[in-house]
Design a protein around this nucleic acid. Structure first.
Length: 135
DNA sequence: CTGATGACGAGCG
DNA sequence: CCGCTCGCCATCA
């Protein structure tokens, strides 16, 4: 199967340095995909030389459970990735910032910024401090 | 070949 | 934060 799409995704995943993480949506955007499920499928069938554990969801959490998901967290922690109480990682600290020149040279698109002022998911329970008691 | 499913993401309520 | 729908890629029954 000469799945060009998967090969591109694998090439990107291999470019992720140790201690860094990225998201499925990020990889999908770089290969021009609009359906991020394909990225998940790609990682699910990724060859052993692909650091699949460095690919997590946009919420900064492990998307999968079971032994495979547990192994993912262990591997990331061994690389220096820290998880908070919510089981999330800080993209500002461990988020992968792909080299623009490398992307252009390999024919990839420039992805949107991975981290913003505030993490995605609009309202986060973590910053509950903003709301004081109702009365 | 058709239909269902999945390691996802954005939009809505 | 949770739950649901749609988007539209590959694999499996």
């Amino acid at each position: 199967m000469t799945n060009d799409l998967f090969e591109k995704i694998y090439a990107l995943a291999r470019a992720i340095p140790s201690g860094k993480v990225t998201t499925y949506g990020q990889l999908g955007a770089m290969v021009g995909l609009s359906d991020m499920r394909a990225v998940g499928d790609a990682m699910n069938a990724c060859p052993p030389d692909v650091p699949w554990q460095r690919v997590i969801n946009a919420r900064g959490t492990i998307s999968i459970g079971g032994a495979n998901g547990a192994r993912q967290r262990i591997l990331l922690e061994q690389e220096g990735v820290e998880f908070d109480e919510n089981g999330r990682v800080d993209f500002g600290a461990v988020g992968w910032k792909p080299d623009a020149d490398w992307l252009a040279t390999n024919g990839y698109k420039q992805p949107p910024p991975l981290v913003k002022e505030k993490n995605k998911t609009k309202n986060q329970a973590g910053d509950a401090g903003g709301q004081m008691s109702l009365f």
